[in-house]
Design a protein around this nucleic acid. Sequence first.
DNA 1: TATTGTTATACTCTATAACTATA
DNA 2: TATAGTTATAGAGTATAACAATA
Lengths: 152, 152
Amino acid sequence: MADDRTAALDRILELVAVLDTDSRESLARDGLTPARAHLLWVLQHQGPLPQRALAEALRVSARNITGLVDGLVDSGFVTREPHPTDRRATLVSFTEHGAATAARLEREHGEFARVLFADLPEDRFRAFADGLDHVLDRLREHGVSLDAQAER
Amino acid sequence: MADDRTAALDRILELVAVLDTDSRESLARDGLTPARAHLLWVLQHQGPLPQRALAEALRVSARNITGLVDGLVDSGFVTREPHPTDRRATLVSFTEHGAATAARLEREHGEFARVLFADLPEDRFRAFADGLDHVLDRLREHGVSLDAQAER
DNA sequence: TATTGTTATACTCTATAACTATA
DNA sequence: TATAGTTATAGAGTATAACAATA
């Protein structure tokens, strides 16, 4: 019994490894890395942002954002524009290529979700989603969550 | 409906992020990184190995193993010993500290699995494990798996 | 005085290619 | 000739600290 739990955790970790490697390869085909794609994702959902806001959203240092934006500017996904009211800040905005890529990544994300659960009957899907919620709740109870991490 | 699937995928990705950050922090307290801990894990399950075997097990370059072993030697987790029959090779073995740490990490892995599924009734746990298998099968069908990745 | 972003510096993980020692 | 591991080199992600420009 206890061993079943360990086996399930191992399968979760296998899933983590598989998703990580696969998304990495897929992004590489677009000339992106996970960190840079994450930045595009935030821009896609929140619109043009100053680097400071990006640092908070990605929960990384300001220095790191400078590097990520440098890379995305060089590869043509975003531009640095002057902030309309604060001359210290720069607004990071999509180029056409960046906007098109981000939109496509979002579409593919939805398609991937459909493939993942294809042919899984509704009741079994519900049960799985339930278990997922349970696990995330258990982690939150133990102070392990994105919010808890953000507070540090 | 289709949106439920996307929401479930998003929760899987949240779980991935949470587990990644949490394990990273936990390992850091032991003076380890994920890559170095992975190497210790392999050593724990397969015994002393030449670096070449470690490169295959971790699926990284030989050069990378040199760096990881350098770090683990410096921090006192492993030693490089001469290979008994092949003078080109070096055997990577645990120090006492390394062996004790690896054993503790394995214990904590099992404890973590128990916490994760605590209070989840057996039938709901089964349903979750089922869904997990389904998702991994779907990925395998699409050529996305650790084995498929290994073949490249 | 506080904030935004950059420069300087450093560490880890990752890779390929050239090279040494040994098989 | 092939294999084990290292040196050389490079790129990405991450961090802290010092600093410039602006608020």
